[in-house]
Amino acid sequence: MNLILLYLQLILTALLTGVACCIPGTFLILRGTSLISDAISHAIFLGIVLAFLLYQQFYAPILFAGATTVGLLTVWAIERIIASKRLYPDAVIGIMFPFLFSIAVILINLYAQNIHLDIDAVLLGELAFTPLYQITYNNINIGSYCLWTMVAILLMNIVTLILFYRKLIIATFDHDFATIIKQKPNQAYWTLMTTTCITILGAFESAGAILVVAFIITPPATAYLITKRTSHMLCVSILLSILGTLIGCFVAHVAAVSIAGSIATTYGALFAIVYIFRSPLRLT
């Protein structure tokens, strides 16, 4: 396949992933529970392993449904344990995700050794491999599975944002008020969690289990430093994400290093720059 086209697909996939992650990421940060995305990503990894062991296929819709369910169940379990008041909330997250991840790793070692499920690749992501799985239609390649999955997820996130924008803002800002005026904050919360799970699942291919946290948290956190409206925060985070992804891809190409790592580090560098210059950069 044409090398240029291959690279373009790669970059496009990364861009789509970054932008798609900004949307749930913004609200997770505003809620103050952004590290739940770390817990979700480890839980989803287990979901993928379980689904794979049961169905022996990688790209089935079952995989998506199963992994998302595991993610949502984990969120629910974390909430219930926190409510029981026997452990502090951060401790619950810190115990839950290594536990789920450990089960996944052991399962892989026990039952899936023959199949190529390289743990390092899953942990660190390897965007470079994504064009390997192409969709063909009438014998024409129309892009990798990963690319089109991220297109679908981005559309899903945009639609969710349009439908739930006000509900999400009011549920995050003042939960009680939202309940009183019947804006259904719990509905907004679980919608957010569901889109987060699905987005993280889709981003696995591009970013890997750990670095997906970079895509979800860093650009919105950077935007938060210099914006005063939620709408601005969303826009700025998307712009930063695009900028960071492009720079990251370029650096990865030039230095021949991991793409996901490059992007995550670039996001971090952008955060540092914006942090230092946040006073002059602030948008009124």
């Binding site: 590290l35 670095l211 946290v213 956190a221 790592g261 995550a264 580090t265 971090g268």
Partner: peptide, 17 residues
């Protein structure tokens, strides 16, 4: 936890590079 997330992800990204 946002600050932790940023530092965690960025440093791990650098390490991955």
């Amino acid at each position: 936890d946002t600050i932790l997330g940023v530092i965690l992800a960025s440093s791990f990204g650098l390490g991955t590079i």
